[in-house]
Write a protein that binds this DNA or RNA. Structure first.
Lengths: 160, 160
DNA sequence: ATATTAGTTTAGAATTATTATAAATTGAGT
DNA sequence: ACTCAATTTATAATAATTCTAAACTAATAT
């Protein structure tokens, strides 16, 4: 079953309608799997082919997609919330590499934390249901070429 | 050397003055090491004994403390930025446990990621300078007692 | 077919967090 | 004390997000 069918099913299963607006938003997310779009970006990109789209609808739809665990809301420190499609498996989470010099955001589509999650449970009596792992730093290729494309303000490193 | 002396030194080293306002903010943070205070919280708590304090000053001071790597700015998904004192060692980062049922935020004062950081460098050519690791889940003690104190809205889990 | 209803969308207002501005104040060095 | 630059304050401005009320839509019952 392809992604859109699966999502459509999830909507139905929770008695939500897959309206054209919602459809358009889901399609856009699927077409840009590797980007982490903000509400504004989603809004702008759809607005072109679909002028009668309300910003509030985008907010509500993304929130709904969160609720259905189709996307994940994240904040990378540039002041806006960004949304990230979840893979097929809920427990198969990915990690992020955030480049200090160019702002590039790369995903590691792998879960490296199973062991640590067991340790958390053992040592802290804490049952992990989800996690987030971001690395800040620089790509070697990036620092060599001195690519200072768009070094966005980041929270963890605090600009220095 | 104690914490306040060290911080004072860092201010001096960068030609910043340790004004009474800044002093007060630093003291408050030190006195609440384990909490992750927001700007508003810092502002309110100091305002009591120090009525002539501007909110903008709190923003600016916390930003400055970030720049000096004394605190770290983080966003846990409740809509406000929170600030967290860094330990003595920059590279000795801690991790977070965030409880879904009561919203409690606990720190693991340890660095479990050295190995993974090496792996990131090896496999992705990415030199890590900082990281962030949060676990979402529930404390066993918490779920047993059903403590639903104040389940704040969180981003990663998206409310469900 | 038509009326009803619940869910959805829209535009715009309201709210909230944060940043910018300009005038007043402070503090270190002379 | 005087000067200059850094800092602070109060306020205004901006930006992201949420709320609201009216309009719209699709499905169902009549």
């Amino acid at each position: 079953m392809n992604a859109i069918a699966k999502i459509s099913q999830q909507f139905a299963a929770h008695n939500y309608k897959l309206t054209p607006q919602r459809q358009a938003i889901v399609n856009l997310l699927l077409a840009n799997e590797n980007e982490h779009l903000s509400v504004e970006e989603v809004y702008m990109r759809i607005k072109g082919g679909y002028p009668h789209l309300g910003l509030a609808t985008v907010y509500r739809t993304l929130e709904l997609l969160c609720e259905l665990h189709i996307v994940e809301k994240m904040n990378f420190g540039d002041g806006v919330a960004r949304y990230d499609l979840r893979g097929d498996e809920h427990d198969h989470m990915h990690h992020h590499l955030i480049c200090n010099s160019c702002g590039r955001l790369m995903e590691i589509k792998d879960d490296w934390l199973l062991e640590l999650e067991q340790r958390v449970e053992r040592e802290y009596g804490f049952k992990v249901t989800d996690h987030r792992l971001d690395f800040k730093g620089t790509f070697n290729t990036c620092s060599r070429k001195g690519c200072k494309a768009s070094p966005k303000k980041q929270e963890i490193s605090c600009g220095a």
